[in-house]
Amino acid sequence: MRKQTTIDLSISLVLVLAFVALPHFYSNLTILFMMAMYMVLSQGVNLLYGLTGYMPFGYVGFFGAGAYGFSIALQHLHFPIVLALIFGVLFTSLVGVILSPLLRLSGAYFAIGNLATSQVIYGIVANSHLQGITGGGDGVDISQYFNQTASYYVMLAVLLVVMVGIIWVKRSSFGLSLQAMRDDSVSVAMSGVNVVRNRMLVWLASAAIAGLCGAIYAWFISFFYPSSVFDVSIGIFAIVFMLFGGQGTIFGPVIGTIILYGIYNVIGVSTPQYFQLAYGVLIVILVMFLPNGVLSLFKRGRRAHGRVLESRPNF
């Protein structure tokens, strides 16, 4: 194993262990859960956007699908928690397969198309004709399974797995072919790379990550409305955290989430009226001066192992 890989794995382990220990020093488990969840979600966006250039503005569609898939498996199929989580992920992957024709669009068309489809899923779930299955607009109540401690630790386990996965992808020849795909999708095919299949794999992996987050979130809060798990801002948060930290990097999404979600909880809770302003200003600064995120500040001229992608989406 390469030295840099060992370092990256160690940092990831320390990160997760810190979150394992944190509840003993800090009592607001919801904030810790949400922070871990956003790290995972923004890694999911990072996988898709950072490696293939597709910007999933409707990422929350998968999150919501996972939340509902999980809840339906619990309530109607009476699955145990673990199987219900798996069901949620499989259900989300199925949604991913159904939505895969979106990958034929590029750039802004993909982003908008993805946003629109997430709202269609929302519309279907909230529809009163499906009241018997989804609960419709009345929401879902799975409070008999309420267990915040367990769901928190499951989220941490997922965080660790996703971190290891990202590190593997970045170092593997699969990851290299993805980056080559982003540079030139025509000549990469002549190198023998099956572009359509690779895109599909990344798309489904990214969908599955969001679906799993949604499922664990549903378990954690155990009562929710369609509007709360299909809230577009969940996906947008994940995108902004990823962009802020550094797209295509291993730790960008983690750093971005810690800083921005941290600020959100300080300013957003005490003086919510300033939050929108601060956030808006931050995004403008980011796009103008730091298109590759804060991590790029430390990576200048040290490209060899960080492999920061260029900010060149496939628009």
Partner: peptide, 25 residues
Amino acid sequence: NRTYQIPKCFHSLTVKENIDVALAH
């Protein structure tokens, strides 16, 4: 296989990585 009138390298990758992609597949 082929080359291109206007080169189509993987710009963000090193020369070695460019060749590695082809070798890997």
